[in-house]
């Protein structure tokens, strides 16, 4: 390996022990015989790597946890207060028997007329009517008799000068 390649590997890989055993061995052997690369290694480790690796560990000031926990507690309290208010409101409503009766009747009314007895929409009624007509038409057509039932399909054929011939 050339010196430039060795120095490149010293910069990244060798200094962090992130090279394979073979490459590490090659670099070490090269360093034994090349004083320029050895100087590069020493300067690199001394000026570039070592100051960071030996940096004093830092710890956050105690006030940081105090702030975090205060915000969390405040948030909890706010959420709890909101739930408590809803609970109080519901309690005050349900403490009056008249209000409970009125709400129960209203709920039953909504259930019966809004969900169970709800009339079909107009489109659904039209589709249902059309399907019933078709069913009747096919039932009679099956018997082989010429009968006019007044269905929309028959009207369409008659208006278009189509004739059913047997």
């Amino acid at each position: 390996m050339k010196c430039a390649e060795i120095r490149d590997l010293i910069l990244v890989g060798y200094a962090d022990k992130e090279l394979g055993r073979l490459s590490m061995g090659r670099i070490k052997r090269h360093l034994l015989k090349c004083k320029h690369c050895r100087r590069f290694e020493v300067l690199m480790l001394k000026n570039v790597v070592s100051p960071f690796r030996h940096a004093d560990p830092v710890t956050p000031p105690s006030g940081v946890w105090h702030n975090i926990s205060t915000i969390i507690y405040e948030h909890h309290e706010k959420a709890q207060r909101f739930l408590d208010n809803i609970k109080d409101d519901l309690d005050s409503i349900f403490s009056h028997p008249v209000a409970v009766t009125v709400m129960t009747v209203a709920l039953v009314f909504i259930l019966v007329f809004g969900v169970i007895l709800r009339p079909l929409p107009v489109e659904m009624q039209l589709v249902n009517g059309y399907l019933a007509e078709q069913e009747e038409f096919l039932r009679i057509a099956d018997t082989g008799k010429e009968v006019y039932l007044g269905t929309a399909t028959e009207d369409f054929i008659i208006q278009g000068n189509f004739f059913i011939s047997r």
Binding site: P57, V58, P60, V64, N67, I68
Partner: peptide, 28 residues
């Protein structure tokens, strides 16, 4: 994890107040 978070924040921002703000935001 607090020390780690604060250390990265401090070395990245070079400012104690910013580092505290980052630490607080990250933990929240």
């Amino acid at each position: 994890a607090g020390g780690f978070v604060y250390s990265i924040a401090l070395h990245m921002t070079h400012n104690n107040e910013d580092a505290q703000e980052v630490t607080q935001d990250v933990f929240l």
